[in-house]
Simulated assay, not measured.
Amino acid sequence: MREKSFIMTSKRFTGSVLFKFGLNGFLTLFKIEADLDERQHQFTLKYIPKHISHIAELAKLSETIKVEEVPVDLSFGHFWKTYGNYAGKKKRCEALWEQLNDAERSKCLNYITIYKSHKSKDGTALAYPETYINNRVWEN
């Protein structure tokens, strides 16, 4: 097993909660990077997944909770290579990437495969990478 990280987000709060698990599957880091009210904070503390096997249960506790695995590499270089459309202004795209937080970067990277699949089915071209980020395509 390798180390894995997950980000929990919700429509009911801004920001994210990070859970990082070590090689043995146990929680090694828990970080709240969200604006939670008291009830949400208590909920989060009560249901902290102590083992990676509990992650799936966390997402089922509320209809508004979304839990996604964080890609290991959230660097701009990884995004640029994964996106694969090397058109446009790379430096401007990198500046837009740097404005994203880790939760946004994770969602952005996770959505690329889905986006490419949609584009191949409808026969339209991929947006320039900077347009993909600037228009926040993964949220549409």
Rank of each mutant, 00 (worst) to 15 (best):
V67P: 08
I32W: 02
E104A: 14
L36Y: 00
C108G: 07
S106Q: 08
I114C: 07
C93E: 05
K11F: 03
D35G: 04
T28P: 03
L36E: 08
T124R: 12
K20M: 01
N24Q: 09
W97C: 01
A127V: 15
H41D: 13
I114F: 04
R12T: 13
I65V: 07
K50P: 01
L29Y: 07
N101M: 07
H78W: 08
Y111K: 05
T82K: 15
F21L: 13
T82A: 13
K116D: 00
G25A: 11
K90V: 13
H78Q: 00
D37E: 09
L18I: 08
L126F: 13
K90S: 09
L27Q: 02
C108I: 11
G77A: 07
A59M: 01
R92Q: 15
S120Q: 12
L96E: 05
K107H: 15
W80I: 02
K31Y: 12
P71E: 03
E69G: 03
Q40D: 14
S62H: 10
G22I: 01
D37C: 02
A34Q: 00
G123L: 14
G77M: 08
L96S: 08
K121F: 09
I112T: 07
H41R: 10
D102N: 07
I55D: 01
V70N: 03
D73R: 12
L61A: 08
A59K: 00
K89A: 12
F79E: 00
H51C: 11
L27T: 04
S117C: 10
Y115D: 06
S106W: 04
Q42H: 12
G15P: 10
T124Q: 09
A103N: 10
K90Q: 13
G88E: 00
G84M: 14
K116M: 12
S106V: 11
E68W: 09
G25T: 06
K31P: 08
D37A: 07
D73K: 11
K11M: 06
A34F: 02
S117M: 08
W97L: 05
F19D: 01
A56N: 11
Y111R: 12
E68V: 14
S16Y: 02
K107F: 15
L61H: 03
G123M: 11
T28G: 04
E63K: 11
P49F: 09
R12A: 09
